[in-house]
């Protein structure tokens, strides 16, 4: 049984993603999990530096790690839902072990599988701040609502940003991009 959460004052997933990207002085590479996160990332603002992961759920953190290792002079932001990250929780152990200093994870926690009829996620009562601190340390796990660009600039990476977001009544608009289009556009941006 989940605890009741008052979501009336929480930002939307789209607004949380936009706010996190805006923390960076230069747009980071944004690597989003399949479905909900990719849809809301595109809705928040399409950019050639967006990498829309096509599956499976939870892989964005691992894809972002590979990208961060390949582009050590660029900042990389992985965007994961709570249900998605729970499917690849071991990636936090891998990232903590590798200590990439250019990788952060934005966890958008709406406590449901938004793309699957908003069925409740098993992590709905999980303390993600405590989880993040266990992997990365206290200073490297922060709430989005408490961040400013200035404070974010001083947070050591790898880091976890936890954003409590309101579940959406509707799915995001379709991506409208083929895999070939996504790959070609991102390849150009990543080589730029």
């Amino acid at each position: 049984m989940s605890s009741p959460v008052n979501t009336s004052n929480l930002p939307s997933q789209k607004d949380a993603i936009a706010a996190a990207i805006a923390l960076y002085p230069k747009r980071p590479f944004a690597v989003s999990d399949v479905a909900s996160q990719s849809g809301w990332l595109k809705a928040a603002g399409h950019d050639a530096r967006n990498l829309y992961v096509s599956g499976p759920m939870g892989l964005a953190t691992s894809v972002a790690l590979g990208l961060a290792a390949s582009r050590p002079n660029e900042q990389v932001l992985a965007i994961a839902g709570d249900g998605a990250l729970a499917m690849n929780l071991t990636s936090l152990a891998t990232i903590a072990g590798m200590k990439p200093d250019n990788l952060a994870i934005l966890l958008v926690d709406n406590r449901v599988y938004e793309f699957t009829a908003s069925v409740q996620s098993p992590t709905r009562d999980l303390d993600w701040i405590a989880v993040g601190r266990a992997f990365f340390g206290e200073g490297q796990c922060v709430r989005l609502s408490e961040l400013t660009a200035e404070r974010w600039a001083g947070v050591k990476r790898p880091a976890l940003i936890v954003a409590d977001v309101a579940p959406s009544a509707a799915k995001p608009p379709p991506l409208g991009l083929t895999p070939a289009m996504i790959r070609a556009e991102f390849l150009g941006a990543s080589r730029g």
């Binding site: 690597v31 990498l51 992961v53 499976p56 892989l59 964005a60 953190t61 691992s62 894809v63 972002a64 790690l65 590979g66 990208l67 961060a68 290792a69 390949s70 582009r71 690849n88 071991t90 990636s91 152990a93 891998t94 072990g97 590798m98 790959r183 991102f186 390849l187 990543s190 080589r191």
Partner: peptide
């Protein structure tokens, strides 16, 4: 990159390959 689980490895490789590496 020592991964905790094999599926992560595929993700890591995809991240590099998407950047043309």
């Amino acid at each position: 990159i020592a991964c905790a689980r094999e599926e992560e490895c595929i993700g890591v490789a995809c991240g590099a390959a998407m950047a043309g590496e």
